[in-house]
Amino acid sequence: MASELRETIPTFGEQGGEETQEVSLTNWSALTNTGLSASWRDTGIIALVAVIIILAAEVAVRTLNIPSYILPAPSAIGKALFTRFPDLFWPHMQVTLIELLSGFAIGASIGLIFAAVITQFPLVEKIVTPYILLLVTTPMIALVPLLILVFGFTLTPRIIAVALASGPMVMINSATGFRRTDLARIALARSYGASTFQIFTKIRFPLALPMIIVGLMVGAIFGLLTAVGAEMVGGKNGLGNQLMFWSSMVKMENFYAIILLLALMGVTIYVIFYWIGKKWASWQA
């Protein structure tokens, strides 16, 4: 007998459905309704605005004699970025990418599995959720000095910090997704004789997927923040470390070039998950 349906009065609309209203940190529609789907004309206008801003900055820096330690000319930043990328920036960007990807992979998979398991046990979930919230809201960068003390100036403390920053974020969003219990759909699958595992893979998981993708996106962006922050605290490589280095050398065109690279990484994360969401979760919108 299908256990979750035992005490279900089969009128979902009225009293039977225990569909929990979702309390989550992010909303899928909020992330997909902005930008990216613009037409070519809109894209052209957006690009034009960027060109105008860059040109205006160039002119302003040159005519107003703005000192280069405040804002170097955009052309100087561009030159630094393109000429010095292979030798100055790429090696450090690789370090940051390794930290981000491995930390995120560890954190996200643990968070996802944890969310999938824990939502099956409401009592355990009730007890654990406040602690997960604590992990989400505590800035994980704060733990980096401690982690460095334990693991030394290696990649390990940074990867752990990234995992700690992204994991709970993935976990809390995915849990919101897994908590959606669509009893009508579950009853449908049960009527075909579905096992609990099939209910999970064919109903619960697809139902949770939009929230999981949101969690992964936010988790990845939190991971990037934490990776850069951890590099600033300690170590001798990584883009965060280089930000500190070039600002102390007052070589601001290199500093801004790194900022651009970090922005590019953040935007790439957004675009990747935007397209994943479009492909796998568009039924939600």
């Binding site: 009128t11 979902f12 759909r185 449908l188 075909y192 004789g193 099939q198 697809p206 139902l207 039924w283």
Partner: peptide
């Protein structure tokens, strides 16, 4: 069984919905 409100799976197209019982069974 046929339910109140069609009860199609919104993330599957019509054909995939019809294939759903075969997947489960």
């Amino acid at each position: 069984m046929i339910f109140q409100d069609a009860n199609l799976l919104p993330w599957r197209n019509l054909w995939q919905n019809i294939m759903f019982p075969f997947e489960i069974k």
